[in-house]
Amino acid sequence: MTKKMTITSIKKSKGVSPLVMITAYDALFARLFETDADMILIGDSLNMSFAGKSDTLSATLEQMIYHTNAVAMGAKNSFLICDMPFGTYVNKKEALKNAIKVFQETPADAIKIEGGEDRADIIEYLCSNQIAVCGHIGLLPQAVRSEGGYKIKGKTDEERLQLIRDAKAVEKAGAFCMVIEGVKADVACEVAKSVEIPVIGIGSGKDVDGQVLVFSDMLGLFEEFTPKFVKKYMDGATLVKSAVKNYADEVKSREFPQDIHTY
């Protein structure tokens, strides 16, 4: 059994070995990912992957708690990070109340919240109250409606400097690592070098401290569209549909079940 990562070992990995993070939403897939993933993120992306929503904003705290507990049942030896959904950390008081609920009702090792300098005071408040926080800067999925879409960051010098300020603010506030999403690769590299905590990339190039992907994207199960930053490591949708067709054909032809499948 692989030794479970800790906040200390995650921090010490910077500059030593890239960190592997993957999303999971249930016990079945979490069990499959546990051996190779350093961290499992129970992402609010579940409402896009599972519920067919167009964005992550509809995810609720109750959903995140339910799915975090499900993942924990399958990956008992993994470092688990629970995404705090939209609207659950609008101020310090609400953020702490909701983070405490996650910690009390699940075995999550940490929570993740989106935002840089503008959320630093909330991150600091949470950390001062014994809540482990993973930050998230760059493209923020929870801001998709206010920004009018998913927009790549780091295209201008102003954005580059703001991302560095965001990263430093998140680090200073006490986060043990952060996700950087949808940022130009050269800028993401500079951001990662500007802080002492690991910076985990998604759509931000390879020169950061690790990578995270949504599992349904990585396994080729999501067919609606494929973001440029996603590599499909298998054609999962085709494999699943082929298996289901074989099952249906065998049921209709009475080839299944055979004697070995019968009591």
Rank of each mutant, 00 (worst) to 15 (best):
Tyr233Pro: 00
Glu255Ile: 15
Ser216Leu: 15
Ser242Lys: 13
Thr23Val: 13
Val199Trp: 14
Asp36Ala: 11
Lys155Met: 00
Thr8Leu: 06
Ala27Glu: 11
Met39Tyr: 01
Ala143His: 10
Val102Gly: 05
Gln211Ser: 05
Lys93Arg: 12
Gly220Cys: 03
Gly220Arg: 05
Asp36Tyr: 01
Leu140Gly: 07
Ile42Val: 15
Thr262Pro: 07
Gly174Tyr: 03
Asn246Thr: 15
Gln63Ile: 10
Met218Ala: 05
Ile111Arg: 05
Tyr263Ala: 05
Ala169Asp: 09
Leu213Lys: 04
Asp38Val: 00
Glu158His: 02
Glu171Lys: 04
Thr226Gly: 00
His261Ala: 08
Glu250Arg: 08
Leu139Asn: 12
Val251Leu: 09
Glu196Asn: 15
Gln142Pro: 09
Asn47Phe: 15
Cys82Met: 14
Val170Lys: 00
Arg145Gln: 02
Lys172Tyr: 02
Ser9Leu: 08
Phe50Lys: 01
Thr56Gly: 08
Thr262Tyr: 13
Val195Ser: 01
His261Cys: 01
Glu147Phe: 14
Phe222Trp: 08
Asp186Val: 04
Val71Ser: 12
Glu34Ala: 04
Val20Gly: 06
His261Met: 05
Pro141Lys: 03
Lys11Trp: 07
Phe79Gly: 03
Gly74Leu: 01
Ser13Ala: 15
Val133Glu: 12
Ala108Phe: 04
Gly115Ser: 05
Asp44Pro: 02
Ile180Tyr: 07
Ser194Ile: 13
Tyr66Pro: 09
His261Gly: 02
Val187Lys: 11
Met1Gly: 15
Lys92Gln: 15
Glu34Val: 04
Leu41Tyr: 04
Lys53Gly: 04
Val183Ser: 13
Val90Gly: 11
Val183Met: 12
Glu223Phe: 03
Lys76Asp: 07
His136Cys: 10
Val214Leu: 13
Phe50Met: 11
Ile40Ala: 06
Asp121Arg: 08
Gln104Tyr: 11
Ala167Glu: 08
Arg145Gly: 01
Val214His: 08
Gly220Leu: 04
Glu62Tyr: 10
Ser242Cys: 01
Ala237Gly: 00
Asp259Ala: 14
Lys53Thr: 11
Lys245Gln: 09
Gln63Tyr: 12
Gly87Met: 09
Arg119Asp: 07
Tyr263Pro: 15
Ala59Cys: 14
Cys134Gly: 01
Lys4Cys: 11
Leu28Tyr: 09
Lys53His: 13
Thr60Trp: 14
Ile260Ser: 12
Val240Glu: 09
Leu96Asn: 00
Arg119His: 02
Gly220Asn: 05
Leu221Val: 11
Ile197Ser: 01
Ile137Trp: 07
Pro141Asn: 05
Arg165Leu: 11
Phe215Ile: 10
Lys12Pro: 12
Gln211Tyr: 04
Phe222Leu: 00
Asn129Cys: 08
Ser58Met: 13
Asp209Tyr: 15
Asp38Ile: 02
Lys231Phe: 02
Gly220Val: 09
Tyr89Phe: 10
Gly203Lys: 03
Lys206Phe: 09
Ser54Thr: 12
Lys14Phe: 13
Ser78Trp: 03
Cys127Tyr: 07
Leu32Ile: 13
Asp83Met: 00
Ser194Trp: 07
Thr56Asn: 01
Ile180Asn: 06
Glu171Ser: 07
